[in-house]
């Protein structure tokens, strides 16, 4: 199983996503956050994670998906990045799955929209596809936010 990788999986608008498990610091339920006026809408706010302040990014917004229905609280997937921890807000957390490279394929060119940039690859599962997020690109908004 040398070519197998473990992924932390989650759901976003009924799509199934995964992030390499070693990039994930922790996963926790919804927590109150402080909104940041002037920040782009993708940034939901700041969270106090045991004394550390981390930025929460709304993945639905980031992936240009429709907003989460009212009343549904997102979950936090905290990933480690060179610039400190960042929380990704997702709909629901899935299992940690071990995937074999045999099932891997690069994303088809026909994927549309921003997903094309942010999805690094696809694992074929029975009945569904696991989309692997490029975390570096996900948290990098390119141009500095100008306020």
């Amino acid at each position: 199983m040398a070519d197998a990788t473990q992924f932390c999986t989650f759901y976003l608008n009924k799509h199934f996503f995964g992030i390499e498990v070693e990039k994930v610091q922790e996963v926790f339920r919804y927590q109150e956050m402080t909104p940041i006026p002037l920040a782009p809408p993708t940034i939901k706010g700041l969270i106090n994670l045991r004394g550390q302040i981390i930025t929460a990014i709304d993945l639905r917004k980031r992936l240009q998906m429709p907003d989460r229905p009212d009343g549904e609280l997102p979950m936090n997937v905290v990933i480690r990045t060179p610039g400190g921890a960042v929380s990704l807000l997702v709909d629901e957390i899935g299992d940690v799955l071990e995937m074999s490279l045999d099932d891997y394929e690069p994303p088809p060119d026909t994927i549309e929209g921003i997903a094309r940039d942010l999805v690094r690859g696809v694992y074929k599962l029975e009945g569904t596809l696991l989309l692997i997020l490029d975390t570096t690109k996900t948290i990098d908004f390119g141009e500095p936010v100008n306020a």
Binding site: P37, I53, V86, I139, V145, A147
Partner: peptide
């Protein structure tokens, strides 16, 4: 310090 995504908002110096 603020995360890199919001660092550039000039109205804040930190949190």
């Amino acid at each position: 310090p603020l995360g890199q995504q919001v660092k550039n908002i000039s109205a804040y110096s930190g949190a």
